[in-house]
Nucleic acid binder design. Sequence first.
DNA 1: ATCCTATCCTGGCTGC
DNA 2: TGCAGCCAGGATAGGA
Length: 289
Amino acid sequence: MPELPEVETVVRMIRPRLEGRAIGAVDVRWQRTLGGSSARRFAQGVRGARIRRGWRRGKFIVMDLARAGRPAGWLVGHLRMTGRIQVESRSVDPGPYQRLSLGLDDGRTMHFVDPRKFGRIWFTRALDELLGPLGPEPLSEEFTPGWLHAALHARRRLLKPLLLDQTFVAGLGNIYSDEALHASRLHPLRRSDRVSAEEAARLHASIRSTLRRAILREGSSFDGFYRTPEGQPGSYQDEFRVYGRAGEPCPSCGAPIQRIVVAQRGTHLCRRCQGRPSRRRGAATLSAR
DNA sequence: ATCCTATCCTGGCTGC
DNA sequence: TGCAGCCAGGATAGGA
């Protein structure tokens, strides 16, 4: 699923094809891709605008738009689970899952393709309404071990759902949360306010190294969905230590990887390496789906 | 404050 | 072979 490393890869690849281009024809094939906005309003916002710069915030793809050299709102995309962005010459058929297409002034077309229809593309003049709630970028200078420790103690949440919460830290999803927790030897059911400064520092380092390594590998592909805009799979799935490896031996200690369900998400861990969950009042949130 | 469930969606899988 | 039913998952809304 596209998480921070996949979205970063997409942005790096589409930037050179989109920056400087002006948007022409707007073709909306699935209304709800626009997230409630009307096709007319969307088209008015983007048609004729020029893309100045493309960048990433969390799992959002952001394109600064301009008209006559002046800022004119933003084109924002979120791939959710199965969204893809392809920039192709006009003759290339985007296939049956085409949801939205934007003509470009170099004769090419940017397609948003999304089998499961969860992805969204917005035009907005108030970028902060979309990005404002996000927590810090985990690869930014703002994200420090000290900040993480304090932030963990400001909440009383289980680690796994907290890492998935985009208002806590932006960009982690199910895969990289599991991988980072394993690398830091912390159980996904540990309570955030009971994590020591040393453990928080470990988690901080693990989140960063996992994401950086995954970016180098252009993300993870394993279910046929995620592909780079070049159409190539990423390769970080070859380095998964726990995700999707239930029953296989832990690469650190050899004990079998377990799969539990936390916050409705498949969660993978090594019980030997990652210790025990924090004791909670009442029964645990552990259910075997 | 935090948790849980349902919702949005479809392709792929399981089991009959 | 065909088909019903379940499952995955990011984000969010609403209820407990």
